[in-house]
Structures are given as structure tokens and as C-alpha cells.
Write a protein that binds this DNA or RNA. Sequence first.
DNA 1: TAAAAACTAGTGGTTTTCCACGATATCTTA
DNA 2: TAAGATATCGTGGAAAACCACTAGTTTTTA
Lengths: 213, 213
Amino acid sequence: MKKTYSIAVLDDHALIIEAIKSLLQGAPDFPFTEGFQTYEAFQAYLASGKELDILLLDIQLENQDGIKLCEKIHLQHPNLRIIMLSSNTQPHVVMDALKKGAKGFLPKNVSLAELKEAFRETLNGKTYLHKDISLIPSERKTSRFDYLPKLTRREKEVLKLILEEMTTTEIAEKLFLSPSTVETHRASLFSKTNSKNVVGLIKYTLEKGLLED
Amino acid sequence: MKKTYSIAVLDDHALIIEAIKSLLQGAPDFPFTEGFQTYEAFQAYLASGKELDILLLDIQLENQDGIKLCEKIHLQHPNLRIIMLSSNTQPHVVMDALKKGAKGFLPKNVSLAELKEAFRETLNGKTYLHKDISLIPSERKTSRFDYLPKLTRREKEVLKLILEEMTTTEIAEKLFLSPSTVETHRASLFSKTNSKNVVGLIKYTLEKGLLED
DNA sequence: TAAAAACTAGTGGTTTTCCACGATATCTTA
DNA sequence: TAAGATATCGTGGAAAACCACTAGTTTTTA
């Protein structure tokens, strides 16, 4: 396990960046790494090969929808923990962000203690939500956030190979199965994701992180 | 040679104007003169007979195409140095702006040092481009930003409908085209994204944000 | 204005997907 | 141990995707 984790902030207000930065001076194990005011600057940083563990992302950037941005970043960097910063804690907003890959939700006036707590939780693969944030009870009952369909071992294997642009025949050969069997697994993948065809399946997989871990 | 030069910013985001303004407080020889959020305000200023040496112009104003604006301003005020502000550093965009009279190109998160450097260069009749900007398309591999293939209008339309799980026939009907035509567009989408089939195309589209904007 | 790019549409294929069935074997767990 | 889920494979067929061409028209750009 690593000793320290790198933390970045993407928020168009320099003030927020500064606030987080100064907060984190009290947490040596979570060193503030970088602040970005634009998505482009953030992209450039990651493109240069730098590593990052956690991103604090403003939900309302200048021109961009932070949740969409979250989705995009999440697709490109599945291992990066994204924690949304927002004063808007409406349940549907929170749910939406979580579905698009956010791992946490904090208000902008977060305390150091809570910030650290959120970091620990998300690094452990959990989801952290600020106390005041309550999800709609009916949506809460399942797991912590999403009702992702459960895929069987074989279905996952087949799905991974579909993602690699392989045809049914190729997958069958690779897994030493009959094409019929692979077709059966495909069919059950469509059914589980309510897709009409492979396009829907791929979209579902990428957008909801169906294949993660 | 003058001792000081007047600098103005035309950008619809007040934040950017403020950012530049505060940056320039560290450069007494380049006093910040005025910030404008609309072209009309800028025009009014010049019409009143005030002088201006350099204009920092946002490439993406609210409703206007900054490059066209650049051309217009340049025709009216040939001696005014126009430096474009943009996060979009695609070669063709840069080339386009330069052809329309821009003398420089900078990202919005420019540093004071670079800003001053750009001013000096352009005042000397040269052209200044941010270091990450490459005019040669074949060098884009070295650029920090991913190269995205340029899709035509029709290709984008077709791609959007593919994303909606529509079949070729359905797309053809919706766009009032022959299925053959839709197939042609599909084929060129595959070719442009180096995909073997629709799976690769969808992955590419979602992961690289091909369809954005 | 000439060249290039985009858009259109076709022929005639082959391959792959997707569907609707049925059916047996194994593994898991209540 | 019985039920249920998972994994396996089949037939047959319709629909869709994909390929390799050609080629005329329109729009854009140099």
C-alpha cells in the first residue's frame, strides 16, 4: 500500500483551489498535488503521464457540466477516484453523478476531517457521501448506489472479448467453446442490459462501468 | 519606441478578464487597459478614438466565431496586434486564425512570463505561438492532446444515430437517404477510427469524446 | 475555375448478428 | 437432496453488418 496519495482539484474558481490546498497542508499523507481551472489544463497534466489518485471535481464549471465531465474522465481513467464538489445536494443530482462514475460527494465548505475520511473511503473502493446528502430511500435499498446487473464468470469473459472487437467465432475459438454457446452468453448480456444490439451493450458497459474489477 | 503599451481583453467570461488583469499587475510596461465582454463594447471603445496596441481575443465568444471576429477587427485596425486566447490548439484552427490576421496564440491559463514574451514578439512584428501548438499536422503525435479525426456533418449525424442503437435501414429512413449511403458513411467512420466493427467505433467515440461539441 | 472533399447511390456479394426454439450437464445452495 | 442458476450446444432462419468496388452530383476550398 502506498504511503501517500496525490490529490488534485479541478474547479474554475481559484479560491476553491486555494482553500483545498491550504486545508491539505494539515494532511501530510494526502499531499495537494495540483489545481486546475480548466478541463484542458487537467487533461494536459494527465496526458503528460503524471499519476493521480483522487480528483476533487467541481460540479459546476464555467461552461461545462461537471457530471458529464466526470463521466468522460471516468471513462478515460477508471482508476482515478473522482469526488464531486457541490453545494447542490439534491438526490437526483447525486445519483446522477454516482452513476457517471463519481465515488464521492462533498460540499465546498468541507472540513479537513471529512476530506480525509472521504479520501480513505474512496481509496478503499467505497463511496463517500457527505452526511447531509440523502439518497431517495427507494433507490437506496439495493447497494450503495447502482443496481448493476450481475454478470456470470462466462458472461464477463465474453463481454471482455466483445469489447476487443472479436466476433462470435473468434471468441468461441479463444475460449474453446462452440459458437452457439458464445451466442447464448451474448443473448443473456443483451437481456441483462436491456440492449437491442451490441451498440447498447458497449454503451452500457462503458458508461456504467459494468466490467470494472 | 513607446515605453508602455496598452492591452485589452475581449472575452465573454468576466473571470478570464479578471485573471489577465491581475496577471498584468506584475508587468508595469504592459498596463491592462480595458476588458470587454462583448464585441459591441469593444467597438464602442475604439470608436471613441482610444488607442490600443494589443488585443487578447477569446476564440470562442458567446454567440460569435472568434476567428471571424478577428478578421473583422484586423481589417478595421490593421495595426492592432490580435492574440487569440484558446484552449483548442488544433493545427487547422491555429492556421485559420493566423490567416485571418491573428498574431499570436495562447492558452487561457497563460503565465505572466509567457504573456510578456508574446507581447514583445508581436510588437516586434513577429508571431508568437504557445509552445504546445504545432502547425504541422503530422507532428500532432507529439502534442499532448489526442488527435481526433475530423468527422463530416453526415458522419456525425449517422454516428449519433448508431449510438442510439438504430440499424442502417432505420437511419436511412430517418435521414431520408438510401441505405447504401448510410453504409458508405459507416464505412468511413470505421476507417477514420481504425475500427474493425461497430464495437470499436462506439468505444472510440465514448472514450475519446469524438462526438462532443 | 479547377481540384478536392463530401455526399449520394448502386451492384453483388460474404460474414456476422440476432432470434426462437429445445435440450443436457454441472454446480450451488437452501 | 431438490431447486435454481450456470454452462454447454444444437437447428434453422431472417436481418443486419460488413466488404470491395464503381460512379455521378454537389459543395467547398485553394
